[in-house]
Design a protein around this nucleic acid. Sequence first.
DNA 1: TAGAGCGTTTCGATAATCGGAACAGTGTTC
DNA 2: GAACACTGTTCCGATTATCGAAACGCTCTA
Lengths: 253, 253
Amino acid sequence: MSLKTLSKSIDLLDCFTAEQPTWGVRELAKHLNMNTTVVHRIVSTFEQHGILMQNKETMKYHLGLRLLEYSKVVTEQLNIQQYVRPLLKEIMDATGESVYLTMLEGKVGVVVAVMLSTQEVKHIIPVGTRGPLYAGASHKVMMAFLDEEVQQEIMEEGLRSVTPETIVEPDVLREQLEQIRKHGWCISVGEFTEDVIGIAIPIQDSQGRVMGSVTVAGPKYRFSEEMVERSLNVLLFQLPFLRQSFNIISHIW
Amino acid sequence: MSLKTLSKSIDLLDCFTAEQPTWGVRELAKHLNMNTTVVHRIVSTFEQHGILMQNKETMKYHLGLRLLEYSKVVTEQLNIQQYVRPLLKEIMDATGESVYLTMLEGKVGVVVAVMLSTQEVKHIIPVGTRGPLYAGASHKVMMAFLDEEVQQEIMEEGLRSVTPETIVEPDVLREQLEQIRKHGWCISVGEFTEDVIGIAIPIQDSQGRVMGSVTVAGPKYRFSEEMVERSLNVLLFQLPFLRQSFNIISHIW
DNA sequence: TAGAGCGTTTCGATAATCGGAACAGTGTTC
DNA sequence: GAACACTGTTCCGATTATCGAAACGCTCTA
């Protein structure tokens, strides 16, 4: 069993998104079908701990700076600065395109580290971004190596378009996953971000379970056949080092 | 009044630090003087929401990836990428040293953006780091412009050494704050990090209230008198632009 | 094989949460 | 300028969710 009060409080916290980062008390109450008093108590408790902050002019609430500290602990624990980012940098230098480290969390992928291309035109997805496992190379390459029953569950929960290019046909997706397993890598065009190509390889632990993926991504027009092949070679060359870094991480996790 | 359950749950979350990022259920219960069952319920509720995660081998818990998303919303809201970081970059380019944007949160300072020096030897403090207002240039420069009663409260709560150089004498501190108000900037040596010089200016809103500070920091040996003066000039030159960026931010916050 | 440790579950006693109503503000409308 | 609508906030008795000792199932050590 779980704590109802805490669970509701977290649901409330989840309302604070990039799309709507500020909320009033009654506004939140309406949105969550909760009593105003209850929302107020939750919100003021969060405020006391720096997790929410109140704008004293508009009286509305927004996420607090304390959350930056939690996030700092997470990334430090992943040893991202020390182990992973140097590897991403090498891949970025060799390809010239943005590189992403994505991790598996249940049935979603989470971007945990980025190394941005130094070119003027580049692909940018911020750390912390989450998305469904069926859209985009970085996610599909993880989904392909999950148990079939989990894949089935994801498809039964419904495939929704992120972009017009997102695969929403279960049969098409199933066949693609089959191909990804066969090749050991995945290329997608515009499935998660329009006009962007992603090339991804999975990272597995010593028992062969997928933990995450590494992706090179950039604007379509820069990815000739030769460039695709080169990117893939760079990724596959770095794979053993990435695996090793992940083993260090997984000892902590 | 505040919610006891939620308050305790957040206290529990606060145990997960860089020093001790993983905890067992009974271990946490002992540390917090709480019942094991209670801790277990809190922990598993957090886990259901991705805020904590359990290592299925050691059975211990650690902070979850969901926290990265909250942090993403915070920084996006601050429009740090868009407005602030380019300014920090200019300061870094002009001085060659690491630059920090710190914000005031009650009686602590929180690092909300960094632009690291490209030199081999550099000062590094990660985003999300918190510290008392009496230690280091970035913090003292904010404290100096607070109401006197708040300053008094901070001193009454006790001044503890962060490094051997930290000012712990209330009278010395009071005089320094006086000087900072007079000059409009602050230089400190080794108060927050040993052998590191920090040069900071405050950022105030249109009503003159301190919102944060910007700091140039690097190893002591690189800061000649000339370099100190140059850094200060760079900071003061960028100040109006930084203020403007902060005004944009404060409209949202 | 016994013991000590772990995370987890159960269930009745307990105490914290809930929520309607009212308060104190601000800004808008007529 | 008074009535209204809207904020965030506080109060207090009824409600119900949380609490916690004890036990379970497991692993690891002696």
